[in-house]
Design a protein around this nucleic acid. Structure first.
Length: 575
RNA sequence: GGACCUGUGGUGCAGUUUGGAGUGCACGCCGGCCUGUCAAGCCGGAGGUCGCGGGUUCAAAUCCCGUCAGGUCCGCCA
């Protein structure tokens, strides 16, 4: 039907007779005897010169036969990859007419996202969206080749899986043959891949679709993709090396540059210095610890286990309205308050200006300046509270005040290691698993599992890029005795553990190798590679914030007959 | 579960603060003119339930209440 592709033609093809197929991107008519048609396919645009009138409109699908020639002197278009040539002596066949598209198919106009979703197949015709999805394919290919090179075997795991009442809400799938029973769609292939280790696959990977019935964000949606991997007889460092290599390989395939060695930071340091477990390393603005300075203070607002602060360089010019908004934000995040100090010129050098400043001692005022290093024109923000809360709120403010878009500027990866094993207490007073209950405790902390569980670190690790969590993994527990102790610490009885994960525990009785793994959020990685702030820009058919598909209308009610087949009855509408 | 933002011809916006005739801009669409344009140009034209419902008012795109949809964020996401 065609001899080549639109965007690949150039001076080398001059005098060739070609047949091209594509969509009419634009037409420019110049009277009775001259018209230009920009023909578009996935490779680009070529200008076709037509002698005479024709009735082709935007987005008609046409086949053009003609001869490639150099454009006449002075008519070369340097903004077009094919701008040196054009097709002339054209005959044109309309393969399909098209209505005027409801969304513009040009990159410079961004239609409303809801409309783009409804007509996604038109939105995807745009150069940018074509590039995004093709970049995604490039990344997938690079990751596959890196995994294969490292000896990983691709295995597909089930989408219809068993409910495990833990973690994220799961999507349920009713069974036709087992009325009243349900499959669930996997939040991740976690247990399946551990079983593959028991099965002796040694190194497994999969580009796996995962589903979580949770509220969404710019960086999360209900259905997403992970590069999932697991390996036997390996340490945390081995997994970190493999994942680093895979990401570097993908980055090289996309940007041409291999990223530098990825630095590491402990979870405790990340929280203390950046107020988050996913620090954005592209800018400093680190948190400052004023706890020692205020350890014996008489100022009630600063009497707290921890006093942390943040210097906003040049922030002294912020008006009261902006500062009040920051205070509201801090309070909204749970902080008891937010103290602020403008650094202003004083009699003996810089001094602090604030409603609170008069209540502070001279030493305290001088200490704030000395420890923070703030200079005239800066704004110092401080929170006195429990350590984790003070850090967390300031970490949020740090990103709010200092961060650029996730996809802007350089790519700064960081490994966050030594996560805590448990994350506070649940309603019954038991420690809550910070990762999942199969995560191996840090060997140095194992002895405190019973005596001081909240101080136990785990062998869990996250990869962070520009403040987004790219993925996480851990060394898994493969020994029954340690697993028993962790379940005990979580308050999980043997009976409950058996009911939830019995098939996994049973498998482990038959010889489980030491193993560890990881999962990389591909949508996030690709979004950042593509320069996008939302993962929806790199997903072919994304869902809305409420999990709806505006193109198909899903989710939809099922007909009564279909419900009957599934053994379901419609509940009365919620009021 | 909560906070906030947005909703105006096919598209993108302005108009909403301070109520006064569906007013404006750009693109697109339709028709005409045009032999070197490329976001073509020029002339003309069509196209509207101002998301939806209610309220206040002599009068509502504009104010109030509710609701729906989309988005950002908090909670949530082992």
């Amino acid at each position: 039907m065609r001899t080549g592709l639109c965007g690949l033609l150039g001076p080398a093809d001059v005098d060739q007779r070609v047949a091209l197929c594509g969509w009419v991107a634009r037409r420019r008519e110049h009277g009775e005897h001259l018209a230009f048609i920009d023909l578009r396919d996935h490779t680009g645009i070529i200008q076709c010169v037509v002698d005479g009138r024709l009735d082709v409109r935007s987005e008609y699908v046409v086949r053009v036969e003609g001869v490639v020639r150099r454009r006449p002197e002075g008519t070369v278009n340097p903004r077009l990859s094919t701008g040196e040539v054009e097709i002339h002596d054209c005959t044109l066949e309309v393969l399909a007419a098209a209505e005027t598209p409801p969304v513009p198919i040009v990159d410079r106009v961004e239609a409303d996202e809801a409309l783009r979703f409804k007509y996604r197949y038109l939105d995807l015709r745009r150069t940018k969206m074509q590039a995004n999805l093709r970049l995604r394919a490039t990344v997938n290919g690079a990751l596959r080749s890196a995994m294969e090179r490292n000896g990983f075997c691709e295995v597909e795991t089930p989408l219809l899986w068993s409910p495990t009442p833990e973690g994220a809400r799961e999507f349920a799938v009713p069974s036709r043959l087992h009325h009243g029973s349900f499959y669930v769609l996997p939040q991740s292939p976690q247990l399946a891949k551990q079983l593959l280790m028991v099965a002796g696959f040694d190194r497994y990977y999969q580009i796996a679709r995962c589903m979580r019935d949770e509220d969404t964000r710019a960086d999360r949606t209900v259905e997403f993709t992970q590069l999932d991997l697991e390996a036997s007889f390996v340490s945390q460092d081995d997994i970190i090396a493999v994942v680093s290599d895979a990401v570097a390989h993908a980055s090289e395939a996309v940007t041409g540059a291999r990223p530098a060695e990825i630095t590491r930071i402990t979870w405790a340091d990340a929280l203390d210095r950046f107020g988050t477990d996913k620090p954005d390393m592209r800018f400093s603005m680190e948190l400052i610890d004023l706890s020692a300075l205020f350890a014996t203070t008489s100022v009630r607002a600063f009497s707290a286990p921890s006093v942390k602060a943040l210097v906003l360089s040049g922030g002294g010019s912020l008006g009261r309205a902006r500062i009040d908004a920051l205070i509201e934000r801090a309070k909204g995040l749970g902080a008891p308050g937010l103290a602020w100090f403008r650094v202003v010129p004083g009699e003996g050098g810089a001094t602090l200006e604030s409603p609170l400043a008069a209540h502070l001692s001279d030493d305290e005022r001088a200490g704030i300046l000395a420890i923070s290093g703030a200079v005239e024109g800066d704004l110092v923000l401080a929170i006195a509270a429990e350590h984790d809360l003070a850090c967390g709120v300031l970490g949020n403010l740090r990103v709010h005040l200092g961060a650029q878009g996730v996809a802007e500027g350089e790519h700064r990866y960081v490994w966050v290691v030594d996560f805590p094993m448990f994350e506070g207490l649940d309603e019954e007073g038991n420690p809550a698993a910070a990762h999942h209950p199969f995560t191996m405790p840090h060997p140095e902390d194992l002895e405190r599992l019973e005596s001081d569980p909240l101080s136990v670190r785990s062998q869990a690790y996250d990869l962070v890029l520009n403040g987004w969590e790219l993925g996480s993994g851990s060394v898994r527990i493969h020994r029954a005795d340690i697993q028993r102790r962790v379940f005990d610490a979580l308050g999980l009885s043997p009976e409950e553990a058996q009911a939830r994960f019995g098939f996994l525990l049973e498998a482990f009785r038959y010889g489980a190798p030491p193993h560890a793994g990881f999962a990389i959020g591909l949508d996030r990685l690709i979004a950042i590679f593509a320069g996008e702030e939302s993962i929806r820009e790199v997903i072919a058919f994304p869902k809305t914030q409420s999990g709806a598909d505006l193109m198909t209308g899903a989710p939809k009610p099922l007909a009564d007959g279909a419900l009957r087949d599934l053994g379901l009855v419609r509940a009365p509408a919620k009021k």
